[in-house]
Amino acid sequence: MSFAVNALICASYFSRRNKRRRRRYHVHPILVERLLEGEFCKLFWRLQEDEEKFFDYFKMSIRSFDELQARLQDNLKHCNMFRVPIQPIERLAVTLRYFVTGQTYEDLHFRFRIGAATIGNIIQEVSKNIWSLLHQECLSIPKTQEGCLQIAAGFETVANFPNCIGCIDGKHVRIICPEHSGSLYSNYKKFYSVVLLAMCDSDYRFTYINVGACGADSDSNIFRRSSLFTKLQNGEIILPPPKPLPHTTEPLAYMIIGDAAFGISNKVLRPYARSNLTHKKKIFNYRLSRARRYIESTFGIMSNKFKIFHRPMNTSLPNTTTIIKACCVLHNYIRERDGYRIQDTLTIVGFNDLRHNANSNIRSGDAIRDKFANYFVSPDGCIPWQNACIF
């Protein structure tokens, strides 16, 4: 009896094993046609004949694409003795279309005639290389006082806010619930997310990003655990010495501007709480919001350029973090070379604000904020239209 049972088990095992080994195709005929029917081979070379269409397709100019491809080429080369490898230029094109359209791997599989798993590997490889090669050049906090002074001069010119070295904000990026994560990534709006904490200058460029914090985490905790906060506290970021505001004599420190989600300190300015505001406080909140809109617009430009932020990301958490970081670097890369379209700054799609958490008030920060508020209502610091904007 036992012999018969064992024989049946062995027969069933080998039968299933043979079925698993049996493949209909080594490479599916649809994929074999990649070099003739794939979207890259049929469309890319025609796009290069039309600058406007090329920009609409990749969201960057031909010159910017060629420069990026040349810098990534050596790291994206592959050798294969059995089939023609996918060239670096096509790998970059697939990755950019993934960012720009927000399509799934399966959608791109049929368009480019490349396997869905291969597309996933390509996107991760290209994203890692974009970050490693470009982040020091395109996305970094100024390492000198001259760099900070240049940012401050920009905010003073375009936003009428002196002594500002950056605007900071955090946004929720939607994701599919990771396995075995429970409610760790569920935020207060009841969807799953990771947090992108970023700081920008007055030219809509990121100067700092922190990616990957859990959606359930509080905004203040994310900032306090960030390397930016650590470097500010330890003096690793060399800020310019305090400087008097225009037409005044008392020196004031250079500050970072944030919204109500951040606790006030001697490094970060936030608006007054919106209850029983005096005229002076309303003016300060208005002036601060005029400067803070640059980080909102920076998020808006990036999310409207890269539609990947318009839907939940369904990749693993490490891969999601890599993709977000690559998009931020590409945003700066394109911004410096091709500018931006004004309509991209008008709306923010794909991001959600962090929850307000106002438990941290530091007296030195309150005193600095009051000095800025007094300046903005004084004859030296007021702007002609500010009173009309708060009523």
Rank of each mutant, 00 (worst) to 15 (best):
F351H: 05
N314F: 05
R311I: 13
A358M: 07
K307T: 04
T315M: 14
L354H: 04
N332C: 06
L354F: 03
R355L: 14
L317V: 06
N357V: 03
L354Y: 01
S316A: 13
P318D: 06
I362H: 14
D353A: 09
C328D: 02
R363I: 13
V349I: 11
N361E: 12
N361W: 10
N361D: 11
I324E: 09
Y340M: 06
F309K: 04
I362D: 13
I324D: 08
G365A: 07
E336L: 12
L317M: 10
F372A: 03
N332A: 01
L330R: 00
Y340L: 12
Q343F: 12
R369M: 09
C327F: 05
T347Y: 13
R311C: 13
I362E: 15
L354R: 03
Y333I: 00
I308G: 01
A326D: 03
T322S: 15
Y333A: 02
N361Q: 12
L354P: 06
T347C: 11
L317A: 02
I308H: 00
I324W: 02
T322Q: 13
N357G: 10
C328N: 02
K371W: 06
G365Q: 08
T321S: 12
G350A: 07
H331E: 08
K325F: 00
T315D: 15
F309C: 08
T320G: 12
F309T: 07
L330F: 03
T320Y: 06
I348Q: 10
N357Y: 07
R355M: 14
K307Y: 09
T320V: 14
I324L: 09
L346Y: 15
I308N: 07
N352R: 11
L354M: 14
S360I: 10
N332F: 03
T321I: 15
T322D: 12
Q343R: 08
R363Q: 15
F372M: 05
I334N: 01
E336G: 08
P318V: 03
S364I: 05
K325N: 12
Y340W: 11
K371R: 13
D366E: 15
P318A: 01
N359T: 09
V329H: 02
L330M: 08
F306V: 04
T320A: 12
F306L: 07
L330S: 02
E336W: 07
G365Y: 11
I368H: 06
F372L: 04
K325G: 10
K307W: 07
I348D: 05
A358L: 04
D344T: 01
N357Q: 13
R355F: 12
R363D: 15
N319C: 11
T322H: 06
R335K: 10
N352C: 13
F306P: 07
F372W: 03
I368K: 03
H331L: 02
D370C: 03
I368P: 01
G365N: 07
F372G: 04
R341I: 12
G350H: 03
R369K: 11
F309S: 04
N357D: 15
H356S: 15
I348W: 04
I324M: 09
Y340Q: 05
R341P: 02
L330V: 00
A367L: 14
H356T: 14
R311S: 15
I323K: 03
F351E: 05
V349P: 01
M313H: 00
D353I: 00
R337S: 09
P312R: 04
L346F: 15
I362W: 12
I348Y: 00
N359C: 05
G365F: 10
P312K: 04
C328G: 00
K325Q: 15
R363L: 14
K371N: 13
R337D: 10
D338V: 01
I342R: 09
